[in-house]
């Protein structure tokens, strides 16, 4: 007995249209609500001193400049380390791997990696980078942990993007006497850049928002980190400490607002740049 027997198709269509529109609106509403709430609660803490000053009295007073620097620093390190591996693995999967078992195994590995809770990465980072490799509590240790976390995203998005590049581009290039590597480097990757950048940014915004993963690897220093071997305290970790140790809820919301704004800026700016590039190469 079909659905259409109970409800006429045209009405069903109208109902479903409504359902989809409503789902879209709900999603948007939740986003606006959370963003609005955080910004409204956080903005009172905002001023130049908060952004550019050092924390005073564990963060009860003063600013969060060292934390902003720590956050950007670990995220940048994570991106720099994870991007070549993620993109490289994506290229390998699409352009080189011809053994289906290996392809499936790698894909399975990436999916599993993506589903491991971040606190577990944190623990691994402590044992492996901080202790075993003697990197200590440092921006580098934290960046490495975040790199591992961002890797599956960058890899998966790269693979999907590269495999969506039409074969006619590859044939055109090979047909002119290009080698396989020239074809990948000069045609396939440039065409895939918009997708790859989106994947990298997705991975990095995930990394910049992590508290649990960096908790045991970056330390909790409130000094502004200079070298990659200095300890630091990324924004989410600072936020966590402000809130759980009852230091200042106002500053916690201020920190949250800064974090959200940072993520928004990164996302919007890259979207704009990617759009421009896309329009340029696709001639739209």
């Amino acid at each position: 007995m079909g659905f259409s027997k109970i409800i006429p198709p045209k009405i069903a269509q109208k109902i479903m249209n409504g359902v989809f529109i409503a789902s879209g609106i709900v999603t948007l509403l939740i986003l606006v609500l959370i963003l609005g709430y955080i910004l409204v609660k956080g903005l009172p803490a905002f001023n130049l001193e908060f952004i550019f000053g050092n924390p005073i009295d564990s963060g009860k007073e003063g600013g969060i400049f060292p934390m902003i620097v720590s956050s950007l620093y670990v995220t940048l390190i994570a991106g720099l380390i994870a991007t070549p591996f993620g993109v490289g693995a994506g290229v390998y999967m699409v352009e080189y791997a011809n053994n289906n078992r290996i392809v499936r195994l790698i894909r399975f590995g990436a999916e599993t990696l993506a589903s491991i809770p971040s606190i577990v990465f944190g623990l691994f980072g402590l044992a492996f980078f901080v202790v075993f490799l003697h990197l200590g509590w440092s921006i580098l240790s934290g960046g490495l942990v975040l790199a591992i976390m961002a890797l599956p995203t960058i890899f998966q998005v790269s693979e999907v993007t590269i495999s969506s590049i039409p074969n006619s581009y590859r044939e055109g290039s090979l047909g002119l006497g290009a080698t396989k590597w020239q074809t990948i480097y000069k045609v396939v990757l440039p065409a895939a850049i918009p997708g790859i950048v989106t994947g990298v940014i997705l991975g990095m915004t995930r990394a910049i928002s992590e508290a649990a993963a960096v908790m045991f690897s970056v330390g909790a220093s409130i000094q502004t980190p200079i070298s990659i071997f200095d300890p630091g305290r990324p924004l989410p970790l600072h936020l966590y400490m402000l809130a759980t140790e009852g230091i200042s809820l106002e500053k916690a919301f201020g920190t949250a607002a800064v974090l959200v704004i940072l993520v928004l800026i990164i996302t919007i700016v890259t979207n704009l740049v990617v759009d421009r590039y896309q329009r340029k190469i696709m001639g739209k």
Binding site: S168, Y169, E171, G172, G175, L176, G177, A178, V187, A191
Partner: peptide
């Protein structure tokens, strides 16, 4: 080398997503 000597034009035009200039310069550069 062979493909450099024996060029090919495909059924569906397949320019690269690059500028007009870069498309023609591509073979020379590689």
């Amino acid at each position: 080398d062979l493909r450099k000597k024996v060029g090919m034009v495909f059924q569906k035009p397949n320019p690269f997503p690059k500028s007009i200039f870069e498309n023609v310069a591509y073979g020379l550069k590689i």
